[in-house]
Simulated assay, not measured.
Amino acid sequence: MSLAKLACVTALALTLGACQSLFQPNMRVPLEVKRDRWEHIKPGCTAADCPLVNIDTVHFPTNPKLDAIVERSLLKLTSDGEGAPLPASLKSYEDSYLQSAQSRNSSYLQAKVREQHDGLVIIELSSYLDTGGAHGMPGRGFINYSRQQDKVLTLQDMLVPGQEATFWKTVEEAHKGWLISTGMDKDAEFVKNWPFQKSPHVALTYGAVVVKYEVYAIAPYSMGHIELKIPYPRLNGVIRPELFPGRG
């Protein structure tokens, strides 16, 4: 091959490589997020305490797969039990709920982006179901979506293999710190009645790994959703190193 042809081939390869890198998604740039919210009451109801559904969610114009994940995750918060079939959509859930709901009943569902960093989208889910009693029942959840892997990370995806027991031991230590900070460590009855528990709600936020609890899990309803925050340095060798902020 002549030097001229070789130079042309090299230039073409460099150009194609530059173009390829140009079209790779930039993980430093957050995904575009649009908010979508509405509230509807039971059709035909004119009373002051009409049943209602309030939905406040997010959409990702460039990522319909994540849209579907968010919708399904919100619908899971409406389920009465494991294995129960989920509604096909938020709209069908609303129609079904309003058809059978009684006065003073209401359902609130919310999804919001808590933060984005290092190619991760951390979405917090909230629900509140009011059946007309003294207080409603709230629910919570997290989605840790990896844009690099194009999937929701499970706890096993977050942890170094074999480190789950160490992870929960570290969370339990954070729980002891929370008891001390609130003064509840001095209340023997509280410590006995509200022991440490694991939680399915773990989020890889930028400042710390957050473990969030449902009401009644480790404290009375009045104390709300407890959050335990574990700094990343305390999880060296436990959380996969590429998931530490700034290392991805």
Rank of each mutant, 00 (worst) to 15 (best):
K5A: 10
V9P: 00
T10M: 03
T15R: 04
L16H: 02
A18S: 12
C19N: 07
L22A: 11
L22T: 11
M27P: 04
R28M: 12
V29P: 00
E32F: 11
V33Q: 12
D36I: 15
G44E: 08
A48P: 04
P51D: 01
P51Y: 06
D56M: 03
H59F: 12
P64F: 09
D67W: 15
E71N: 06
S73Y: 10
L75V: 10
S79L: 14
S79D: 10
G83Q: 00
K91L: 13
S92C: 01
E94G: 02
S100V: 15
N105M: 02
Y108H: 08
L109N: 05
V113C: 11
E124L: 05
L129C: 05
H135V: 13
G136E: 05
P138L: 03
N144E: 03
Y145R: 04
Y145I: 09
Q149K: 13
K151E: 12
L155T: 03
L155H: 01
A165I: 11
H175N: 09
S181G: 01
G183K: 08
D187A: 03
D187T: 04
V191G: 01
N193H: 10
K198V: 08
V202F: 02
L204K: 08
G207D: 12
A208Y: 07
A208V: 05
I218H: 08
I218K: 03
P220L: 02
S222W: 05
S222C: 06
M223I: 00
H225D: 09
I226V: 15
I230V: 15
N236F: 05
L243N: 06
